[in-house]
Design a protein around this nucleic acid. Sequence first.
DNA 1: CTCTTATCGTGAAATTATTCACAGCCTAAA
DNA 2: TTTAGGCTGTGAATAATTTCACGATAAGAG
Lengths: 219, 219
Amino acid sequence: MNIPERTIERISQYRRLLCDLKKHGRKNVYSHDLAERIGSTATQVRRDLMLLGFSGNSKTGYEISGLSQKISELLDNPGGEKVALFGVGNLGRALMPFFAAHHQDLRIVASFDIDPDKFGRVINGCRCYSSDEMGVIIPRESIKVAILAVPAGSAQSVTDELVNAGIRGILNFVPVSLQVPAGVVVENMDMGMALEKVAFMARQIEKDLNCKKRGRDKT
Amino acid sequence: MNIPERTIERISQYRRLLCDLKKHGRKNVYSHDLAERIGSTATQVRRDLMLLGFSGNSKTGYEISGLSQKISELLDNPGGEKVALFGVGNLGRALMPFFAAHHQDLRIVASFDIDPDKFGRVINGCRCYSSDEMGVIIPRESIKVAILAVPAGSAQSVTDELVNAGIRGILNFVPVSLQVPAGVVVENMDMGMALEKVAFMARQIEKDLNCKKRGRDKT
DNA sequence: CTCTTATCGTGAAATTATTCACAGCCTAAA
DNA sequence: TTTAGGCTGTGAATAATTTCACGATAAGAG
């Protein structure tokens, strides 16, 4: 049972949506309803849920709480997942309350920085350690997942230490392509790339519309 | 000449890499070199550059400054692209210096919030306005691209106003699926999804390795 | 009871993205 | 001059992903 990466992404989105719906008192949901809300198609939703191994029925669609639970069984670590944050700068400090608010399953339990002023301080409910201590603390707490938000210049060297310390998954906010050995996963949150892309695509669409319009005018 | 979205993303990454290489005094680069650095394949790089319409040669590979320029011609708006930031909270304030440092072509020229304490203040070199003013300022400055970093509850309503005001591309940091009319592009920076995914994949890989190991042991 | 309607589940087709395979080119060495 | 080696450009093959198309199911209307 191997679920493609794209499907994993959508499943995470489905769960968020399902939580919202649950809060609004909804008990059931149709594939086309989910699809519309995440900008996909009903077929796609049904196929994803098929891969997940969850069945609905033709009259009421999918049962929300059962589906949420099934998704949690797939995505969540039993007992929660500890996360370490590297780089307690502007971005790092902004991320802490964000994840605290939206994800109780993913807990940032330690942060690391090279600024001695921060050592020992508790920032956003999370103790900040010296980067030198990661080799001790990460194995001790058996932390497997890290968020990287350090300056570009030190991203690779921190990554190397981090992998040594036992980290297996990195959410990378630094606009640098990290080199990691096999067995370690990197997910890039490339904000610069995303902004360039969205600007490009907005221009592109505008251009296409103009072309079509002009095309119509001529005809 | 229609370039697929995936290729656009990689092209943006190539450019960043090329700038680094240029700073290090490199003049030329081979496809396999670029590929290694972004974790792709030489063939993929060559095909991307082919779509871009840039040629190298068999002895020296690709000429870095020429290629950078070609990429800029594709991705950049002549005269730069003005960007507006919505939501000057922790995240919003962290994003301003980030983009200022990494992207001179994409300039955040205005920010908006609903907190009256912030109106009129200049934060990170950027004036903060009341959200009520977006209908005036966005058309006046002909801003087409927006970064959305508001609380989840107001994301959709701000989006609606924003589209009304003439925004055509939105980089969305809010964990909510935005509904927009045709002709408007949304790019989701779904940090929660990304963290869930990286945690899942890290566990997955570990599991796979164990399976393989056990498989070997038995054989 | 039968018909209509709305939905799910899924094999198969279509589409999109990536990789293979190799011709062609250039340079340096023999 | 010839040969070998390393690289680019790209048609064709392959793989991944999405969409189509349709049978199955259930429930309400007539």
